[in-house]
Design a protein around this nucleic acid. Structure first.
Length: 231
DNA sequence: TGCCAGGCCGGGT
DNA sequence: ACCCGGCATGGC
């Protein structure tokens, strides 16, 4: 497949998914800091369990960087118990909160005003933040045009034969980043749709290129698309 | 009942 | 530079 074909394929997949599922309204959180907490808590964990943990944090009035810093790790672990891995995740939440306070005085606006590349490297230096979590923070909390690669995304591009030879995170990310317009709203919706599709279909039955590309054409002029890029 | 979910770290090759 | 065990709950 040449480059033009890859670009067209990626947009076709997006169109198909959006027509099929509609807007996903990600990230499921009320404020950016909650996105960051959720991104850490959902590591290898079902979102339904994360919701319980977030509710606990909110009810206890501890869903803020200051509260997380001041809360003893054991008590934090207790609050987030339903989402599993509660000891490591308590440590990770505190690690982020401490870094965030020291480095940015708990100000998201200051943090996200930095260039995305350097900020990403900073995030990766924090205990408990790897590539996917860092990119989720940049995209869903910071509204930066950074494509998130997760297990669902990998499965889907695998079955479409689009996975790059080295199978690396950076390579998978480049597939999307270099072949789509760098639009945060598009990256947001696209990744959310991949996860939605993965949950509903990908594990239950085979997924091939035809599932997407031979899908019947539908009217695309109804204004449903979340960004102006697709029209 | 067993398998797995929107990963990441650290120690061992 | 990879590989793998550990971390843990709740839902199907």
């Amino acid at each position: 497949m040449d480059e033009k074909e890859v670009k067209r394929t990626l947009l076709d997949i997006y169109r198909h998914l959006f027509t099929e599922y509609g807007p996903q309204h990600w990230w499921p959180a009320q404020e950016p800091f909650e996105v960051i907490v959720g991104a850490i808590l959902t590591q290898s964990t079902a979102w339904t369990n994360v919701e319980k943990a977030i509710v606990n944090l909110k009810s206890a009035g501890k869903l803020s960087p200051q509260s997380l810093r001041n809360l003893p790790e054991r008590e934090l672990a207790h609050l987030i118990h339903p989402c599993g891995y509660y000891n490591v995740k308590a440590r990770r939440l505190k690690a982020f909160s401490e870094w965030f306070g020291e480095k940015y005085d708990d100000k998201l606006e200051t943090m996200f005003s930095h260039d995305t590349g350097p900020l990403r490297r900073e995030l990766l230096g924090i205990y408990g933040i790897g590539e996917e979590t860092a990119d989720s923070i940049l995209l869903y909390a910071g509204v930066k045009p950074v494509f998130v690669i997760d297990a669902y995304t990998r499965r889907i591009i695998d079955r479409l034969g689009l996975t790059p030879p080295d199978r690396s995170y950076a390579g998978c990310q480049a597939l999307f980043s270099l072949n789509l317009p760098p639009d945060a709203a598009l990256f947001n919706e696209y990744h959310a749709l991949l996860v939605r599709h993965g949950k509903e279909v990908c594990r239950k039955r085979p997924l091939c290129r035809d599932c997407f590309l031979n899908a019947q054409d539908r009217d695309m002029s109804d204004g449903l698309f979340p960004c102006s890029v697709i029209s």
